[in-house]
Design a protein around this nucleic acid. Structure first.
Lengths: 205, 205
DNA sequence: GTCTATAAGCAGATAGAC
DNA sequence: GTCTATCTGCTTATAGAC
C-alpha cells in the first residue's frame, strides 16, 4: 500500500495547473495555446500531453483546481457567532477581501460566466457556491424577511465583484481614487448600503 | 460634390459589423476567425479584407460601431424633470432595460473589461460613459451628500450588470425564478435598495 | 517523464482574375 | 467588390527515441 498514493501525481502536474490558471485567467481558453503553457512551465508542448490528454481536459482540470480551495474559502467566511447583522457584515468583508486578493479567481469566474456551457456552470454553482449560498439565504431570511433572498445575494456578489472587474475602465472616470480598490473601503461601502437599506425595512414595518 | 459621401461606404460593411458584433460577443476576439465572420456574412474570407485591412481593425471598428449608439442611449436615460429621487429611479429603470435588452452589449463590455488594453478602455470610458457618469454624479451629489458618488455609481452599474451577467450560473442556485430576469423586477429591487439606503442617510443627519 | 520530429488542419493575410 | 488559389506560420495532437 502506497501511503502517498493520494497526493502523488508528481508535482509537475500541479505546477502546470498553477501556470495554466494564470494564463487562462489572463487570455482565456482560445487565447492561450499549449505552446504558451509549455513555455511558461519550461517543458516542451508534447510533454504536456503526458499529464493531460487534451487542451480541453487541461482547461477543465485547471478550473477544478482553481475553484477547489475557493469553495472552502468562501464557506469559512461565514461566522456563526455575533448578531445576524454582524455575521452578514463580516461575510461581506471576508468575501470582498477574497475577491480583491485573487484576481485570477475573479477573471476565471468572469470567463466561465461568458463561455461556460450549462453543465460546467451547474457544477460551478453546486460545488463552489451552493453551501455558502444556502447559509447566506438562511441569514437573510431571518434578517430581512421582506426581501427576496436570491435577489439580495445576487446584489452582494454584484456590488463586490463588479467593482473590481470594472476597475480597469473605472479608473478613467472622474472621482476614481486608489483607495476605492482597498477591500476595507469597498466592504464598508457595501455594508453601509445594506445596513441602511435593511434597517429602513425594519423601521417601516 | 457627393451628397451621399458620408453615409455611403456600401452597406456590406455595416452588415459585416452587425454579424461581427454577435460573433465577438459570443466567442471573443481570439474565439472568432475571419473565416467564421465571412461564413456568417456569406462572402469569402478574402472579401473581408476589402472592407477592413486586418482582423484587429475589424474588431476595433466593431466595438466602435457597437458602442456608438449606446452612448446616446444611456445619455437619454437621464430625465431632467421630476424630483432628484425620481430622476435617479428613472435612470436605474432605463439602464436596467438597456442591459436586459441587449445581451451583445453586455457581453462585449465584459470582454473589453477582461481583455481591453488601457487605451481602448480609456476611449470606452470617455466616449460611452463619461457624459452620463457626470450627470449621475451631479444628481447623487445633490441627493446623497454624505456618499461617495464614484462608489455609488459603481454600485448601480454592478447591481444591474452583474445580475444579468451571472444569470447563466445563478439559475442553478436555489430561489432563482424566471421573473428575476424581468428588467422591471430587477429595477424595482435595485431602486428599493437605493431609496432605502439613501433615505436612511437623510434621516440620520 | 521529457525530448525531437512531424502530421493535419486552421489561422491571418495576399495575389491576381473577373 | 468578390472570387479562387495560395503563402506562411501557428494550432492541437501523435509517434517514437531516450
Amino acid at each position: 500500500m502506497n501511503l502517498a498514493q493520494n497526493s502523488e501525481q508528481s508535482d509537475t502536474r500541479e505546477f502546470i495547473l498553477e501556470k495554466a490558471i494564470h494564463l487562462f485567467a489572463g487570455q482565456g481558453y482560445s487565447g492561450v495555446s499549449m505552446r504558451n503553457i509549455a513555455e511558461m512551465v519550461g517543458i516542451s508542448p508534447a510533454a504536456l500531453y503526458h499529464h493531460f490528454p487534451s487542451k480541453q481536459k487541461l482547461y477543465l482540470d485547471t478550473m477544478q483546481y482553481a475553484f477547489a480551495d475557493k469553495s472552502t474559502g468562501i464557506k469559512e467566511a461565514i461566522n456563526t457567532t455575533g448578531t445576524l447583522s454582524e455575521r452578514l457584515e463580516d461575510f461581506i468583508r471576508q468575501f470582498t477581501k477574497m475577491v480583491a486578493a485573487d484576481q485570477n479567481f475573479q477573471r476565471l469566474m468572469q470567463r466561465e460566466l461568458l463561455d461556460g456551457d450549462e453543465a460546467r456552470l451547474k457544477l460551478l454553482a453546486e460545488h463552489v457556491f451552493l453551501d455558502t449560498y444556502q447559509s447566506i439565504t438562511e441569514l437573510i431570511n431571518e434578517l430581512a424577511t421582506d426581501w427576496d433572498a436570491h435577489m439580495l445575494i445576487s446584489s452582494i456578489a454584484g456590488l463586490v465583484i463588479h467593482h473590481y472587474e470594472s476597475n480597469s475602465m473605472r479608473q478613467f472616470l472622474p472621482g476614481a481614487k486608489p483607495e476605492h480598490n482597498d477591500p476595507d473601503v469597498v466592504a464598508s461601502h457595501v455594508n453601509r448600503l445594506f445596513q441602511q437599506a435593511l434597517q429602513t425595512s425594519k423601521r417601516e414595518k
